[in-house]
């Protein structure tokens, strides 16, 4: 392959290759070409693409974290609302129970009072009746007794001494 190599290279065969100036031109030229190509490919294609990938990923992660934070706050709010609601409901239930108890008690008291008043009235009426009946009976006792005594005496004696019988009865009743 290197059959037609120039004489400079043959003369430089004894020279330490890295210090052989005859190769410098070619190396510099190809280095310039290849490095320029590399720089172009890196700066225009590869690096923007990787940078974009990383950017998109970072945005995505940040977005997801923000979303998670938002959802967490929402959850906390929901829990707070739930607890407030629960406390409210408990309070309400307590109030309703209290109210119902009060109503029932008041109703009961009223009914009892009414019944008691009714009873008292009836008792008073009954006592009145008894007293009246007793009084009427007492009035009749004297008369019945004297009549009875007269009948007995008439039966025994045969004749009547109404006046004496009456007196006697009166004496007994008084005594």
């Amino acid at each position: 392959m290197a059959s037609k190599t120039n004489s400079a290279q043959e003369a430089a065969a004894s020279v330490f290759p890295p210090f052989d100036p005859s190769t410098f031109g070619s190396q510099l030229l190809w280095l310039a070409l290849t490095f320029a190509a590399l720089y172009f490919l890196m700066s225009k294609v590869a690096l923007p693409r990787i940078g974009e990938i990383l950017e998109v990923r970072r945005d995505r992660i940040e977005g997801d974290l923000a979303e998670a934070e938002r959802l967490k706050q929402k959850t906390d709010q929901a829990i707070q609302a739930y607890e407030a609601e629960l406390a409210d409901a408990k309070q309400k239930a307590h109030n309703i129970a209290e109210e119902t108890r009060d109503t029932i008690r008041a109703d009961l008291d009223k009914k009892r009072a009414k019944v008691e008043a009714d009873l008292a009235k009836k008792m008073a009426a009954a006592e009145n009746d008894i007293r009246e009946t007793k009084q009427a009976a007492m009035e009749h006792v004297e008369e019945i007794a004297s009549e009875t005594a007269l009948a007995i005496v008439t039966n025994i004696v045969g004749r009547t001494a109404q006046k004496a019988a009456k007196d006697a009865v009166a004496k007994v009743v008084k005594g």
Binding site: L41, M42, A46, R49, I50
Partner: peptide, 10 residues
């Protein structure tokens, strides 16, 4: 070298 780098990265 240049081809390997570019091919790999791209």
């Amino acid at each position: 070298t240049v081809v390997a780098i570019s091919a790999f990265l791209i």
